[in-house]
Amino acid sequence: MSHPTPSLSHFKRSDYQHIYEPAEDTFLFLDALEKEQGFLTDLNPTVCLEIGSGSGCVSTFLATLIGGSGTLFLTTDINPRANAATLSTAHHNHIPLDALRCDLLPSLRHTIDILLFNPPYVVTPSSEVGTHSIVASWAGGIDGREVIDRVLPLVDGALSKRSVFYMVVVNENRPEEIAERMRMCGFGMEVVLGRRAGNEGLKILKFARQA
């Protein structure tokens, strides 16, 4: 793995009190996208969207990986500091990108060619879900699935015909159950990469429309 991680030198230590600091899950996501570089370039995507972009590290990385001039990069986050952080990371790395403050996804019909989501996957009490702060970057509620399960039904409507959706999960999220739900919407799933980080069994899932 050789493609450089975006420079994050514009952030101060204290910024990470308010936005999620790239960690093992982020780096596994970057490694998976790099592994998929050939596929993603061949896809010739017009619109990429990342849900919950946080620091902006992942979308900026993807833009440097497949080229920033032939694709529209859109990001969302519910945390206004994350919107600003995403824009500053893109700017710092000379990537054109737009940020939108909203809950999950704007209502785009069959528009997105690459959808990225590193969800709040940590198992927490349900009461911790639904904030607008840094807690929203990790608190996933029951089975860590409460936010993931709000996104899954939106994927079919948002994605274009030739498209792909990547999502980070941990084993507690029951990936095989997610696969089953997506299969019912017409999507096949494969695991691009997996890694054990501390007590987290991380996986990067890839979903594509079945022929």
Binding site: I78, L87, A99, L100, C102
Partner: peptide, 8 residues
């Protein structure tokens, strides 16, 4: 604001 639409 600052180029970021707030749809919430």
């Amino acid at each position: 604001k600052d180029g970021v639409p707030n749809m919430l």
